[in-house]
Design a protein around this nucleic acid. Structure first.
Lengths: 328, 328
DNA sequence: TTCTAACATGTAACCGGTTACACATCAAAA
DNA sequence: TTTTGATGTGTAACCGGTTACATGTTAGAA
C-alpha cells in the first residue's frame, strides 16, 4: 500500500498539497491538482482511514446493538441501516447483546476506544444516565429509553388497541394475548393496549394473558396450555409476529383451524408473515423505514445538524393476511 | 478521555513504561507497575484503539460479507461468528453484497483502508486472483471459491443425493427439484446431486427441475406452475429451506397436502424449519459450527498459526420433520 | 575487584494522515 | 509605486499509541 508520502514524491509536491487535493480544501493550483491526481492514479493510492481517524477522532463507523440478530425482525432493520450507511460511506459494526447489560457496556467501551461515531441500540436494560455520560451520539430504536435520548419507534399502544379492535370487528368473542417479556417497553405497551380494549369485557379473565417472551417454542407450549383450558377462545393477539408462529404451530398441532376456529393477529409485519400458510394478519411496522430513519437521524446527529423531532414515532398499519376471519 | 500521557504524568513515569505495563512486555519494576495500574484505575484510562491500529497495522476487526442478511441462513451464521469474535476481543463489520461484485470490491477497498484484519465472505462472483492480490486473510464460507482460498462448507453433492434417496426410500415415485441460482456453487452442487440420483429413472424429465433462485415468492409461483402441469409429482427436493417455504405455500394454496400428497425436503436446517407446520424435513448443515469454524480459522490465519485443513468440509445430516411421509 | 548480563526506565522516531502557520508570488486597488 | 488580499505551497506539530535504542543500576560470575 502506498502512502501519502509516496504520492507526494511521485508528484513532486509536499504531503500537505496532496492532502489538500484529497480533501478538496485550501488553495491548489489546477496544474498541481492534475499532477497529484495522476500520481494517485498511478500508485493506486487509497488514503489510510486509520491515520485519518486518529487525527479527526472519528471513524466513519457506527455500531448497531441488537439483542439477537437471529430474531428475524432485526436483520430487516439491520439491512435498512446498512444501506443508508453504505450510501454515506459509513461502515456498520454489528453487536449482539442478548439483552445483557454487561455485554452492552462492554460494547460501549470498545466503541469509544475505536472512535465509533455513533450507536443505534435496541435495549431495555441500559440506564439513560449511563448513555448520557458516555457522550456518544446515540439513537434508540424500537424501544424508547427516555425523552432525553433520540429514538425511533412506533405507536405500540394504539397499534395493539387497533389489533384487538379488528379482532372484535370480525366477530371474535374471547380474545387472548400472548405478551412479550415483562419490562421490555414495547411488549408492555402492547400489553396495555390489549388490556385497555378488553378489561371491561364481561368475558375477560387474567388467564387469557400468557407470556411468550418473544420466543416461538415457549409461545407454542404456553398456547397449547391456554387453548386446551379455554376452548372457546376465538381470537389471539400475539405481541409480535415471531411468537405468532408459535401460536400457529400450537393451533395446527391441536387441530384448531386458523382462521375458521381461531383468528390470529401479530405485530411487526416481518416478511415471514407472508411466507407462512395461512399468511399472518399483522399490525405492520414500516420496518425498513424505521431502520432508515434511525440511521439518517444518527448521521445528522454525528454531523451536528439540527435534529428536530428527536423522538420519531411511526404508525403501524393493519396488514390483513389469512389468519383472521374475513370482515363482512 | 484520558491518554497514555495523562497516565504517565499521574504515575510519574514515561509513556513507554505505561505502554509496557499495558502490554505486559519488557521489564517493569513491580512497584512501578502498581503505580501505573493505580493511575490507570484513577483516570479510568482505556487505550486508544485507533492509535494502536495505526502503529500495528491491524484493527482487531473482521468483516463478514454476505449476499443479504435478510436471508435467514445468514443471521444464524453471523451470530456464531460474532460470538467467537466477541470472545477474542475482535469486532464484526457486517456487509451486504447483494451478490454484486462491485459492492464486494468496494467493501474490500474500505476494509484495507481501515486495516481490517480479515474477511469472511459468502460469494459466487469474486474471482480468486482478485482475492489473492488483495493479500488479506480471507475465508470463504458456504461456497468454496478455489483450492487456494481457505473455505468452510458442507458436502452439498452428497447431501443432495441423500435427500433424494430419502424421498425414494419413503416411496416417492416422481421427484422434482427446486434449484437455487445458476452458478452459485452450492446450488449447482445440490442440483448435480439431485440429477445423479434421478437422471436414469424412467419417469425423469427436465421439466421436473425449476429455478427458485433462493427466493420464496419466485419459488411459490414456479411451484404452482410445476404442480398444476405435473399432478403426479409426489416428492420435491428444495435446494434450500427458504425456498421450501415457497413450496409449502404453493402446495397449501393448491390444496395439495404435505406430506400426504407430496413429500417435501429442504436443505440447510435453519431454525425456521421447526417453526412451520408441518415442520420441514431437511438436510441440516451444522450452521452454528460452520460460522464458528470459519471465525476460528480466520483468527488463526490472522495470528499466523498453521492452518492445516484449509478446506474444511462438514457433513449435512438428515433432520426429519413432518413434511415427508413416514418411513415404514 | 572487574566484567557481564539481567533489570529498569526514558527519549525519540515512527505509524499516515491533517492542518496551523510561515512564506512567497502576483494582480488589483490605492 | 506601494499596499493589500487572494492564491499557492512547504514545514512541522499533532493525533495517541509502540518500540528501538540509549543509559543507568545492580547483582552474580570470573
Amino acid at each position: 500500500m502506498s502512502t501519502i508520502k509516496d504520492v507526494a514524491n511521485e508528484a513532486n509536491v509536499s504531503v500537505a498539497t496532496v492532502s489538500r487535493v484529497l480533501n478538496n480544501n485550501g488553495y491548489v493550483n489546477e496544474d498541481t491538482r492534475k499532477k497529484v491526481l495522476k500520481a494517485i492514479e498511478k500508485l493506486d493510492y487509497k488514503p489510510n482511514a486509520v491515520a485519518r481517524s486518529l487525527f479527526k477522532k472519528q471513524s466513519k463507523t457506527i455500531a448497531l446493538i441488537v439483542p439477537d440478530i437471529k430474531n428475524p425482525f432485526f436483520p430487516e432493520i439491520a439491512r435498512a441501516i446498512e444501506d443508508v450507511l453504505n450510501n454515506n460511506d459509513y461502515t456498520l459494526i454489528l453487536c449482539n447483546s442478548d439483552e445483557h447489560e454487561d455485554k452492552e457496556k462492554k460494547y460501549f467501551d470498545v466503541m469509544k476506544q475505536k472512535y465509533v461515531d455513533g450507536v443505534i441500540i435496541v435495549t431495555s436494560t441500559l440506564a439513560p444516565n449511563y448513555i448520557e455520560k458516555n457522550n456518544i451520539p446515540i439513537v434508540s430504536l424500537d424501544r424508547p429509553i427516555h425523552q432525553s435520548i433520540p429514538s425511533v419507534s412506533v405507536n405500540n399502544y394504539e397499534g395493539a388497541k387497533e389489533a384487538v379492535q379488528y379482532l372484535k370487528a370480525i366477530g371474535c368473542k374471547k380474545i387472548a394475548h400472548v405478551r412479550g417479556p415483562v419490562s421490555v417497553i414495547n411488549a408492555d405497551e402492547r400489553y396495555k393496549g390489549y388490556l385497555s380494549e378488553v378489561c371491561n369485557e364481561p368475558w375477560f379473565s387474567e388467564e387469557f394473558i400468557i407470556n411468550g417472551n418473544y420466543n416461538v417454542l415457549e409461545t407454542a407450549k404456553a398456547t397449547m396450555v391456554l387453548l386446551s383450558k379455554h376452548r372457546d377462545i376465538d381470537g389471539i393477539f400475539s405481541g409480535n409476529d415471531y411468537m405468532a408462529l408459535g401460536v400457529l404451530k400450537a393451533a395446527t398441532q391441536m387441530g384448531i383451524r386458523i382462521p375458521q376456529d381461531l383468528s390470529l393477529i401479530g405485530f411487526d409485519g416481518i416478511q415471514l408473515c407472508e411466507l407462512t400458510s395461512p399468511e399472518i394478519t399483522t399490525m405492520a411496522q414500516p420496518i425498513y423505514e424505521l431502520g432508515e430513519s434511525a440511521a439518517k437521524l444518527l448521521l445528522n446527529m454525528i454531523e451536528g445538524k439540527a435534529v428536530n423531532p428527536a423522538q420519531q414515532e411511526f404508525k403501524v398499519s393493519l396488514k390483513i393476511g389469512q389468519s383472521t376471519k374475513v370482515l363482512r
